[in-house]
Design a protein around this nucleic acid. Structure first.
Length: 477
RNA sequence: CGGGGCGUAGCGCAGUCCGGCAGCGCGCCUGCUUUGGGGGCAGGAUGUCGCAGGUUCAAAUCCUGCCGCCCCGACCA
């Protein structure tokens, strides 16, 4: 009975736990270039499920996929003042190609507002060409100084939606609608409770008029910005001369939005649901929802496997993602640990005794084993998986609420952000916000949409509060 | 970009101080046995000791330079 090391316990070193789990569960591995990772098949299957789900939601809201190039002329990025200031420090730039120095360096896209803006300026002529509702699934590069798998990598996969509209109202509606899609995805598919709202001026996207976001709490109490949706106003329209002739015969600038969700969400799923045994994956996006572990001796092998295959077929026919673990070189105990590490929601154990009795053991990744009749077992699983999702979501929400405190003085604020979210009034001044960060390492994460209207004074400087409500502060990833 | 750590078998490491046969655990391969919570026994394979240069009869070990990665902090999806 060899003792095999599991991941570092969360309580001992949460960051090490995260890194251990990613490696051990075979989600990803480090690649040769600093800050880059290889997403392994199990991790990529998870990402594919995120993609498939979200892509359907984008299409249901009228968007179409397109693809714009990886290379962007440097001059494009310089056209929007805030945008270039925000992104230039982290650009990767190609200066040589084909054995020669390029006349104009090419930025590897950090995001595609500029090249899409350029194309729109050629495509859009009339109000009849609007709205433009585009999305692309791609990779982008941002040369981050401090990297961490999924959360912050030099190259990452994401989707970036870009839309152009005739009116401000329509663009703002789009901004809100798409944040709503992300919230729907987070809560109903990834089981992540999130707080939707607006970013402060200091935290907004470089080039946006304003940024909306959803923030989630990880199991170490830190916040993770899980998706953003930006109202870009006419900033990019002016920079790229994207104009159209309206019904009133006047030439006008379009109003644009952009919104994105990256594989960072996988980091959020890992750090929200995982425990000391490893991953816990939300059923709706788990690559494997049910693992069947057959238990047999040489003489019972065929009998047990035959029954296991019958069960596998029954589950597959219901549209469930199933894996029959018939690897001969491992013992059942090993397989139990393995599927727990990989976060599979349900495991079915099937041995000679069960086959004899017409039963099987159903084990939940959230704990508990029960013996159930084989007959009807498959049909019971969809409801079990739905309940699993609900329990996962509730657990995460309870955790967040237990670690969230409304605070009105600075000492209490410091205590609150040391272990979770602080709900506090703030004056709205960027310098004061920066001081908070320097003094507490916490930042303003989100001004929640859904928060009671309240007046007060700034938790740090005592000046009258802005926003008319409390702001969520936390240490963030 | 600042601070720290580490590069030795696929992985985790010991050996480096004090130069002298390249080691351990896990994993891997073969066989037998086992299988209801990470089995056992036996046999076996696997190395530019990060790179370059120097000192020496002799370098993983000492000297010089370089490279890379990881972790921690300030910036970002």
């Amino acid at each position: 009975m060899a003792k095999v090391k599991g991941p570092t316990p969360q309580s001992e070193d949460f960051s090490q736990w995260y890194l251990d789990v990613i490696q051990m569960a075979e989600l990803a591995d480090y690649a040769p270039v600093r800050g880059t990772i290889v997403v392994r098949p199990y991790g990529y299957a998870l990402w594919e499920n995120v993609q498939r789900t979200l892509d359907g939601m984008f299409k249901a809201t009228g968007h179409q996929n397109a693809y714009f190039p990886l290379f962007i002329p440097m001059s494009f990025l310089q056209k929007e003042a805030e945008h270039v200031e925000g992104f230039s420090p982290e650009l990767a730039v190609v200066t040589h190609a084909g054995g020669e120095e390029l006349e104009e360096p090419l930025a590897i896209r950090p995001t595609s507002e500029t090249i899409i803006g350029y194309m729109w300026s050629r495509w859009i002529r009339s109000w009849r060409d609007l709205p433009q509702l585009l999305n692309q699934w791609n990779n982008v590069v941002r040369w981050e100084l401090r990297t961490r798998p999924f959360l912050r990598t030099s190259e990452f996969l994401w989707q970036e939606g870009h839309t152009a509209h005739a009116t401000k109202e329509e663009a703002e509606e789009e901004t809100t609608r798409m944040l709503g899609v992300y919230v729907d995805f987070a809560e109903n598919h990834a089981a992540l409770p999130v707080i939707p709202g607006r970013k402060t001026e200091r935290e907004k996207f470089a080039g946006a008029v304003y940024t909306t976001t959803m923030e989630a709490m990880m199991r170490d109490g830190r916040a993770l910005q899980s998706a953003t949706s930006h109202f870009l106003g006419q900033n990019f329209a002016r920079a790229f001369e994207i104009t159209f002739q309206d019904k009133d015969l006047k030439e006008k600038y379009v109003w644009t939005t952009s919104w994105g969700l990256s594989w960072r969400i996988l980091g959020g799923i890992i750090m929200t649901h995982g425990d000391d045994r490893g991953l816990v994956l939300p059923p709706r996006i788990a690559p494997i929802q049910v693992a069947i572990v057959p238990i047999y001796k040489a003489e019972s092998r065929e009998r047990v496997l035959a029954e296991a295959r019958r069960l596998e077929r029954g589950l597959t026919e219901l549209g469930l993602r199933v894996r029959l673990d018939d690897r001969d070189q491992y013992t059942p105990g090993f397989k139990f640990h393995d599927w727990e590490l990989k976060g599979v929601p349900y495991r079915i154990e099937l041995g000679p005794r069960d086959v004899e009795a017409g039963t099987a053991v159903l084990a939940s990744r959230l704990g508990g084993k029960e013996t159930l009749p084989l007959d009807g077992l498959a049909r019971a699983l969809p409801e079990r998986l739905a309940a699993f999702h609900r329990e996962l979501f509730e657990r995460a929400r309870n955790f967040r609420e237990a670690r969230t405190r409304a605070v009105d003085d600075y000492p209490a604020f410091k205590e609150a952000v040391a272990e979770g979210f602080a709900l506090a009034f703030h004056c709205g001044d960027a310098a004061c916000e920066k001081a908070i960060q320097e003094e507490t390492r916490a930042t303003a994460r989100v001004v929640p949409f859904e928060a009671p209207a309240e007046e007060g004074v700034c938790v740090r400087c005592g000046r009258p509060a802005a926003y008319g409500r409390r702001v969520v502060f936390a240490r963030a990833y």
